[in-house]
């Protein structure tokens, strides 16, 4: 009995220590942002990897999600003779929830995992130690630009995702099912408010970006320095970041209170 309680206590302390290490790492990255030397080119390269290379995936996924929403909702709504509501429902669902969350999960899989794998491989091949030997802080040199790029790219990718999804729902609802284009557009514009919906969407995507950046770089920096370790860390990034995104999505929605 006592040993069970002891195991429980040990596990709890372990988990708390892990959480503390993530927080300390987040503090290191935040500190590194404000510390010179500024290497803007690194940030641009990281933004290319995190943002530009994700655009095709985000746009295609967005359009498909929009098409599915348009088809499903149009069927249900037209049963009640409320097909005019399509624009409003699609807009609110996408901007408030689906956009940030689906986009966050996609970016985790597309860019977050790549960041972990890259940093993990650098650690396994002792490149991070090499940097330390030359008195270059690997957090400043490697982790910070990538975390910052993920944070910066998420709101932009989120907006691109939502616009493509709105277009996808438009394609199905208007071009395929014969809803009037003006009805769709005005339903959308009347239902969506900047402060409640668009701002909340931006806040969510920004928070998700910070979380993805933190998790991805932390897992890379703290993986076991071998092939198995890198593989585990990459998987762990995707799992952890996905769960954290879904959890924090609920917290933000509940706190923002709509």
């Amino acid at each position: 009995m006592i040993s069970v309680i002891r195991t429980l206590g040990g596990r709890t302390i372990e988990q708390l220590e892990g959480l503390g290490r993530v927080a300390v790492f987040g503090g290191l990255i935040t500190g590194a942002i404000f510390r010179g030397p500024t290497r803007f080119g690194f940030f641009v390269r990281a933004l290319y990897d995190a943002g530009v290379l994700s655009v095709a995936l985000i746009a295609l996924s967005g359009f498909t999600v929009g098409m599915v929403l348009g088809l499903q909702l149009f069927n249900v709504l037209s049963r009640f003779g409320a097909d005019e509501g399509l624009g409003a429902v699609v807009g609110l669902a996408l901007i408030r929830e689906l956009g940030p969350v689906v986009c966050g999960l996609l970016v985790t899989g597309r860019a977050g995992s790549a960041v972990t794998a890259e940093i993990g491989t650098m650690k396994a091949t002792e490149q991070l130690d090499g940097l330390r030997m030359m008195a270059i802080d690997p957090v400043h040199f490697v982790a910070m630009p990538r975390a910052l790029a993920l944070t910066f790219a998420m709101p932009l990718l989120n907006a691109i995702f939502i616009v493509f999804a709105i277009a996808g729902a438009f394609a199905i609802g208007v071009a395929n099912q014969g809803l009037d284009a003006g009805v769709y557009q005005s339903g959308l514009e009347n239902a969506v408010q900047f402060r409640q919906d668009v701002a909340q969407s931006l806040l969510k995507s920004l928070v998700f970006g910070i979380l993805i950046g933190l998790v991805a770089t932390y897992k890379g920096h703290h993986c076991a320095p071998n092939a198995v370790g890198v593989a585990r860390a990459t998987t762990s990034t995707v799992v952890t970041a996905s769960v954290v995104i879904l959890l924090s999505d609920y917290v933000i929605t509940a706190l923002w209170g709509v």
């Binding site: 709105i166 969506v192 408010q193 900047f194």
Partner: peptide
């Protein structure tokens, strides 16, 4: 677009 057109 989301802020000005859709968000009003």
């Amino acid at each position: 677009y989301l802020s000005l057109q859709v968000g009003g």
